[in-house]
Computed example of a mutant assay.
Amino acid sequence: MGFDGGLGDVQAGGDLLVGQALAALTGSRMITLNGAFRHGVYLAAGNACVDTKVAGYLADGVLPGEDVTCGRPAV
């Protein structure tokens, strides 16, 4: 649960069940990493977009203003 009463989630683009459930919650936000197919991408996927958004929330307790979709870097 967020400090402001909202919920947040970080998920892989291929992990659809969590996103569908979270989308039904008012005031929730989701950070999705496209092209990832596992649960738990914060700090584990090495994606600056995801890591920066989550670290910002952990530092100040404010959820992003809207859902965020992060892309995978080209390999």
Rank of each mutant, 00 (worst) to 15 (best):
M1P: 10
G2E: 02
F3M: 09
G5R: 13
L7Y: 15
D9C: 12
Q11C: 09
Q11I: 15
A12P: 11
G13R: 04
G14A: 13
D15H: 12
L16G: 08
L17A: 11
V18T: 12
Q20C: 09
Q20V: 12
A21N: 12
A21L: 12
A23H: 06
L25V: 13
G27D: 02
S28H: 09
S28V: 01
R29W: 03
R29P: 00
R29E: 01
M30L: 12
I31V: 15
T32H: 00
L33P: 07
L33H: 03
L33S: 08
N34V: 05
G35Q: 00
A36F: 11
A36C: 03
F37I: 06
R38A: 13
R38G: 08
H39P: 01
G40P: 01
G40V: 03
G40Q: 02
G40I: 00
Y42A: 06
A44S: 12
A45S: 15
N47T: 07
N47P: 10
A48E: 14
V50A: 04
T52D: 14
K53I: 14
K53V: 13
K53L: 14
K53Y: 09
V54E: 02
A55L: 10
G56W: 02
G56M: 04
Y57D: 03
D60R: 15
D60V: 06
G61N: 01
V62G: 04
L63S: 05
L63C: 05
G65F: 10
E66S: 14
V68Q: 04
C70M: 04
C70G: 00
G71F: 08
R72N: 13
R72Y: 06
P73S: 04
A74V: 11
V75M: 08
V75P: 12
